[in-house]
């Protein structure tokens, strides 16, 4: 079985949500991840707050977000076990982040046991 990283990309990290929306979103996320864990396919995951993030550029310049060349912001990620990229993509379809217009989930296979980053 392989491991895949599901990366939550938010179209706009500055968009403000109400506390109720955040709470509802938290519950959906916990239930979604709980469902993956209940299939013994969850490895790990973390949320990444938008505030105060930095990027260290190759020339040593440190900038604040948004990141890379896109204004999209990573809001978190989880790592799942799956037999194929398709199975991993099935998990991703349930991700509550996708309820936000313009948001996406990137599915990437983890390169294992080659000792290199």
């Amino acid at each position: 079985m392989n491991e895949y990283m599901l990366i939550f990309r938010h179209e706009d990290g500055n968009r403000v949500a109400s506390p109720q929306q955040i709470q509802a979103w938290m519950k959906q996320t916990m239930d979604w991840i709980g469902g993956i864990a209940a299939q013994n396919k969850f490895v790990q995951g973390n949320g990444l707050p938008f505030d105060d993030a930095r990027v260290v550029q190759h020339d040593g310049v440190v900038t604040n977000g948004p990141f890379g060349e896109i204004k999209e912001t990573i809001g978190g990620y989880i790592i799942v076990k799956a037999d194929s990229a398709d199975e991993a993509a099935e998990f991703a379809k349930g991700c509550p982040v996708l309820q936000g217009d313009g948001n996406t989930v990137e599915v990437r296979k983890i390169a294992k046991a080659d000792g290199v980053h």
Partner: peptide, 12 residues
Amino acid sequence: LQLFNQLLRIEY
């Protein structure tokens, strides 16, 4: 439910 969600993440 939330406690089981958390428990499963630690140990299936």
